[in-house]
């Protein structure tokens, strides 16, 4: 059966307000309670199926809210060739859902056709930069639109890196025209894990390239007497990350901000409360600027 293109009444553009990561547990609740949040974001790959409930509910929710598509499986940084089937699926989903934003990660997750299902860290070298520039250009050409690229959480860094992560991202954005998805929790996690300075990181990010901000919870793991932070998305945003978020808003300006919580997913109302808190900082930041 050919898919009939739907006309969505909700706008396409993602507003400068807080959004929530949409998870299948909440489909019915969202449609029934119509929570007061600005937009939803989904993991693109969860909607790569041909039909059924996931696409049905996403289209229903899209009627009422703008949607952002966030990918976790494109493997932008892999030495492997780009997976054309994956790009094709994403392009089909974009046509169907008309998202306001499309994003991916500054990472890689496949080698020799085997996939890790995790966002692996890149060495920030000239070689990697050129490779990523080429890949992002290919992706944007294929999709016919800009993508945002997110700074990852990482647990290791390479000795042969010659760029700081924020400089690497800025350079990618400058050379390809891609936007930056600034994940403030990832900044916090990676800075802690590598003894980087979070303030310096945020100050170094090209503010005018940032199109979206992510907030999430993380877990503290004790490894050989040292705390390593793991990006688990399984709890509320911690006070330190909220504080860093407020600093980011001052340095970068107000941006659409997502609450990501996808493991041990709580009730929708708890996510809405987190979004409300983000909205209050966005509002306060507006007032400061006014």
């Amino acid at each position: 059966m050919a898919h009939v293109q739907q006309v969505f009444t909700a706008s396409t553009a993602i507003p400068v307000s807080a959004g929530i990561g949409l998870r299948s547990q909440h489909y019915r609740d969202v449609l029934e309670s119509h929570p007061n949040v600005g937009w939803f974001e989904v993991h693109s790959e969860n909607y790569f199926g041909k039909g059924g409930a996931p696409l049905h509910f996403l289209e229903k929710i899209r009627e009422d809210y703008p949607i952002s598509l966030h990918g976790v499986g494109m493997s932008l940084g892999s030495a492997d060739a780009l997976d054309v089937q994956h790009l094709d699926n994403l392009k089909g989903l974009i046509t169907r859902i008309e998202p306001g934003l499309v994003s991916e990660h500054l990472s890689w997750n496949s080698f020799g056709g085997d996939y890790l299902n995790d966002l692996a860290p890149l060495p920030y070298t000239e070689e990697a930069l050129l490779h990523l520039v080429d890949r992002i250009a290919q992706v944007q050409d294929y999709l016919g639109r800009q993508v945002l690229v997110e700074n990852p959480s990482s647990y290791l860094e390479y000795e042969h890196s010659t760029y700081k992560e924020q400089d690497f991202l800025n350079e990618l954005s400058r050379r390809t025209g891609c936007g930056i998805l600034l994940d403030v929790n990832n900044v916090y996690v990676s800075c802690h894990n590598h003894s980087w300075d979070a303030l310096e990181y945020l100050q170094g990010i090209a503010a005018d390239r940032v199109g979206e901000i992510h907030l999430a919870g993380h877990t503290v793991n004790r490894v050989s007497g040292k705390d390593i932070l793991i990006d688990t998305h399984n709890q509320p945003v911690c006070p330190e990350v909220w504080a860093l978020y407020q600093t980011a808003l001052q340095l970068i300006d107000t941006k659409p901000t997502l609450i990501e919580w996808d493991t041990d997913v709580p009730a929708l109302s708890i996510l809405a409360d987190e979004a409300k808190q983000a909205d209050s900082y966005l509002g306060a930041s507006y007032e400061l600027a006014a």
Binding site: L116, D118, P123, L156, E157, E159, H194, S195, N221, I228
Partner: peptide, 21 residues
């Protein structure tokens, strides 16, 4: 090879990725 230890054994850092995956 090429992974910074930075207060840990580089193996422990790599193992985090193995566990996550």
């Amino acid at each position: 090879e090429g992974i910074k230890g930075n207060g840990l054994d580089a193996k422990q850092r790599l193992a985090i990725y193995r566990n996550n995956s």
